[in-house]
Design a binder for these strands. Structure first.
Lengths: 128, 128
DNA sequence: ATCCGTGCAAAATATTTGCACGATC
DNA sequence: GATCGTGCAAATATTTTGCACGGAT
């Protein structure tokens, strides 16, 4: 039923790469371009929408006004470098533990959370 | 040196109100309008920029694509209701404690963080 | 023949800036 | 008279949608 979709395939392939997280649409497009897979911004966008509906990708908000995507899977938090924009992962969820106490103090029923840590990455720390 | 600025004053007054957090520009404008203080969107925006530069206001990202502002001051986290958009405050910072461990495991030097908790507020929980 | 993937361009959403006018200093 | 606050409209930045074409089924 499915026809070849080189754009979508290439997008999925990049999302699955565990060494990068929080791709913006533009970053994906640029990376595709460098791999000789020219694709329209809207095609990348639609690929992401579809991959998200299929449960392959998930959209994450990293608080910089850009839509970012990564492979859906284990929950984790992100650290974003405020200098170069690089995104890394914090494997442990430090929010879970506090959830009960927060629900009690606020009256909210918690469903999800987004934690973005901001700082300087090791590379940028080494610079002046 | 400063001339009367009813828009900016009214904006600041609302930000300082401790019963509301995370105002969007549009919410502020609507609230001003109801208080018979018609103001242009851009005037509210510029008031916020100025108030932020003065250290009175701070911009917070609550992950819904809108710029949100509140009085600068004590650090705290936010809970946003996914149904009605209402924003409340979580006084305690649950991130501080984990910061050291995160810096060690990621190599980042942490400078700030944004935690947005998502769920249902007490009012919406009471609805069907 | 139909359906789906793609590119191109326009719409939609939200923020930011340019310009002119009038009020305040 | 110069400066600052404001409204109006245009410029940006990004995401989202409409449309048409062409290839795969």
């Amino acid at each position: 039923m499915s026809r070849p979709s080189h754009v979508r395939d290439a997008v999925a392939e990049r999302l699955l790469d565990p060494s990068r997280h929080g791709w913006t649409i533009e970053e994906l497009q640029r990376d595709l371009h460098q791999a000789k897979i020219p694709a329209d911004y809207s095609s990348v966008f639609r690929s992401l929408v579809l991959l998200e509906r299929r449960g392959v990708a998930q959209r994450v908000e990293l608080g910089d006004g850009k839509a970012r995507y990564e492979a859906s899977g284990e929950h984790h938090e992100h650290v974003r470098c405020e200098r170069c924009g690089d995104v890394s992962v914090v494997p442990d969820c430090i929010v879970e533990e506090a959830a009960d106490e927060i629900e009690r103090s606020t009256g909210f029923r918690l469903q999800a959370h987004r934690l973005v840590l901001l700082g300087l990455c090791p590379d940028c720390l080494a610079l002046p």
